[in-house]
């Protein structure tokens, strides 16, 4: 089953993930001003929350990872040499 881990140090409390998730998986923890996972069982691992989070504060574990046919390995290798 999917597990979502939030890095509370990274989360800036913008609430974008709460707005974005169509299945109400997140809610804002008003006291902490951080997001919290409240309905992990409804997460379908679309990862649109990853794209919207400005802090890259969440990690989804044990999900189906879609095939990434678009990655250009020659570009990736070139970047890896620089970084």
């Amino acid at each position: 089953m999917v597990k979502i881990v939030i890095d509370e140090d990274a989360c800036v409390g913008c609430g974008s993930c709460v707005e974005d998730c169509p299945n109400d998986v997140y809610e804002m923890d008003e006291a902490k001003n951080k997001t919290k996972v409240v309905k992990v069982e409804d997460c379908m691992a679309c990862l649109s929350c990853h794209e919207i989070c400005p802090a890259q504060a969440m990690e989804h574990q044990d999900i189906h990872v879609a095939k990434r046919l678009y990655i250009d390995r020659s570009v990736k290798d070139a970047i890896n040499k620089i970084i």
């Binding site: 169509p22 379908m44 691992a45 679309c46 990862l47 929350c49 990853h50 794209e51 189906h64 879609a66």
Partner: peptide, 10 residues
Amino acid sequence: IDHVGPNACL
């Protein structure tokens, strides 16, 4: 289309 994401679409 209900929702689209980089890893799955509903």
